[in-house]
Amino acid sequence: MIRKSLLIAAAGLCLVSSAALASPTCTKEPESKWLSESAMKQKIADMGYKDIKIFKKTTTGCYEIYGYTADGHKAEVYFNPVTAAIVEKNVD
């Protein structure tokens, strides 16, 4: 009985931790309303990010970038593709 409880607790913990690692949802707007990749890349560069690699994530409704901040830190940033607002930012 205790073993079954531990397995259930471990499974629940795995579900919670995997949800925390999932990409955020940035918008539910159709792609026709999204900024083009080139316009988005320019906006991101204007924010000071350098060496940008941009990925269009249609499943989460985000533009995800990998690059560097103005002061040289690695950055992974999720942007709303309609407004160019930062939804989530991870900087090393």
Rank of each mutant, 00 (worst) to 15 (best):
Q42Y: 03
T60I: 10
L6C: 06
S38V: 09
K43C: 05
T83G: 14
A10H: 00
P30R: 06
E31D: 05
K57I: 05
P24N: 09
K50E: 12
G67M: 06
A10S: 10
E76T: 07
K33Q: 15
C14Y: 04
K43V: 01
V87I: 13
A9D: 03
A84R: 02
K4I: 11
D46Y: 04
G61S: 11
V16D: 02
Y63V: 06
M47C: 02
G61I: 09
V77N: 04
A45V: 00
K89Q: 13
M47I: 00
A75H: 02
Y66G: 03
Y68R: 14
Y66I: 03
A39F: 01
A19K: 01
S23Q: 08
A22L: 07
S5V: 06
K74R: 14
C62I: 01
H73P: 02
T27S: 15
F55S: 14
A11P: 00
E31W: 00
L7K: 07
K4L: 15
S23A: 15
K57F: 07
Y66C: 05
A45W: 00
I52N: 09
K4H: 09
K53V: 15
I86Y: 05
I86C: 09
G61C: 05
T69N: 10
T59M: 06
A10E: 01
Y49G: 11
M1G: 15
G67I: 08
Q42M: 07
K89Y: 00
T27V: 07
E37Q: 14
A84V: 01
L13S: 13
C62G: 06
E31Y: 02
I54C: 08
C62S: 05
A45Y: 00
T60V: 12
S5T: 05
Y78L: 04
A39I: 00
G12W: 01
I44G: 10
I54V: 13
I54T: 08
C14S: 12
L21A: 13
K56D: 10
E29S: 15
E64T: 03
A85P: 04
S38C: 03
K89N: 09
I2R: 14
N80T: 10
Q42P: 03
M40T: 05
F55Y: 13
T83W: 11
A9T: 05
C14R: 01
A84S: 13
A70I: 03
I44M: 09
A11L: 13
K43R: 13
K53G: 02
S32L: 04
K53Y: 09
A70D: 11
V16F: 07
Y78M: 08
T83V: 09
A22Q: 05
A9E: 04
Y66V: 03
I2H: 11
I86F: 06
E29P: 04
L21Y: 08
A9M: 07
A22D: 07
T59G: 04
M1N: 12
Q42R: 12
A22Y: 00
C26Q: 01
L35G: 01
S23H: 07
Y68M: 13
W34V: 10
S18V: 02
L21Q: 12
C26M: 04
S17L: 12
T59W: 01
G72E: 15
L13Q: 06
A85N: 14
G67Q: 06
E29A: 15
K53H: 09
A19Q: 04
G72N: 15
I86K: 10
I2L: 15
K43Q: 13
S38E: 14
F79N: 10
K28I: 08
P81I: 08
V16T: 08
S17N: 06
D92G: 12
A85M: 06
L6G: 06
